[in-house]
């Protein structure tokens, strides 16, 4: 995504995975709110920390840095680890 390799530059936010989450959930998800399973903080998906330099997307809590989600995509499949999210709430 960027030319330099500083860790801070690789750090993005939930807006960057809006398209990926739309593929999976078929809904606009950056306004969805997730509760961190570790610290209980509630954040909009647009606010969470996202790293795309891993093989897939790693999503972390902006309050405690705990991993909220991991999403890997390949060979026509998705692998979604949601163990770090206690609740994901969004409008129907």
């Amino acid at each position: 995504m960027t030319v330099t390799t500083q860790q801070s530059d690789l750090k993005l936010d939930g807006n960057a995975i809006g398209g990926l989450l739309r593929e999976i959930f078929t809904m606009e998800m950056t306004t969805a709110e997730g509760t961190c399973a570790n610290c209980g903080a509630v954040h909009a998906v647009g606010q969470v920390v996202v790293y795309l330099n891993a093989p897939g997307a790693v999503v972390r809590c902006p309050s405690c840095d705990h991993v909220l989600m991991k999403i890997v995509q390949g060979r026509g499949r998705y692998w979604i680890d949601l163990t770090g999210v206690r609740v994901l709430e969004f409008s129907a």
């Binding site: 960027t2 530059d9 807006n15 960057a16």
Partner: peptide, 11 residues
């Protein structure tokens, strides 16, 4: 305060 980090314009 709403923020968007550079992802939407990079690469």
């Amino acid at each position: 305060i709403k923020t968007e980090r550079f992802g939407a314009t990079g690469g």
